[in-house]
Simulated scan of single mutants.
Amino acid sequence: MTAITTRPLSDSSDSLLRFAMRADATLCAGAGLFVAMAADPLSRLSGLTATSEWIAGAALVLYGAALYVLAAMPSVRGVGIGVVAANLVFAVAAVAVVVSDVLPLTGAGVAMVVATVAVGLGFAYCQYLGVRRLA
């Protein structure tokens, strides 16, 4: 017979942070796969090239995989702070790109970027709450 030597997930103080990081990783990787597979139709919709759509999708898959691995680290507080900061930096950079009109985005492309920023900020908020719970 084996014994369980770890605390149940519900008793751990880092469960919210780990859950938010894993949910962020899963959604990023899934969205990245979708964007990479549908790069050509999405490029016509967003105004970007199919290559840039594919690169963005691949980057999302890599980020999701890395984030999922980082969520399993024994001490997750520092990683959580870094992920919150990265999500905030991404949101600011994406809004700056849309506002400055650097990319030839269509109306649908702008809507996709804004939706991505909103989801990223939602995950950043959940991760922030998880980091605060650890303090």
Rank of each mutant, 00 (worst) to 15 (best):
A3G: 14
T5S: 12
T5H: 12
P8E: 05
S10H: 13
D11N: 09
D14F: 11
S15M: 08
R18Y: 09
F19C: 10
M21P: 13
A23G: 14
T26I: 14
L27T: 13
C28F: 02
A29C: 09
G30T: 13
A31E: 06
A31W: 15
G32S: 11
L33D: 07
L33S: 14
A36D: 05
M37D: 13
M37L: 15
D40T: 06
G47E: 02
G47M: 04
L48M: 05
S52N: 01
W54R: 10
A58K: 02
A58W: 08
A59P: 02
A59R: 05
V61T: 08
G64N: 00
L67W: 00
L67S: 14
L70H: 11
A72N: 13
A72Q: 14
P74W: 15
S75F: 13
S75T: 11
V79W: 01
G82C: 11
V83G: 08
V83L: 13
N87G: 11
V89T: 09
V89C: 11
V92Y: 00
V95H: 10
V95S: 08
V95M: 15
A96T: 04
A96G: 00
V97D: 03
V99D: 08
V102T: 06
V102P: 00
V102Q: 07
L103M: 10
L103E: 03
T106W: 10
A108K: 10
G109M: 10
V110M: 10
V113I: 04
V113A: 11
V113T: 11
T116A: 00
V117M: 02
V117Y: 02
A118F: 07
L121N: 10
L121T: 02
G122Y: 06
G122T: 05
F123A: 04
A124R: 00
A124T: 01
Y125G: 05
C126W: 05
Y128N: 03
V131K: 12
R132G: 07
A135L: 13
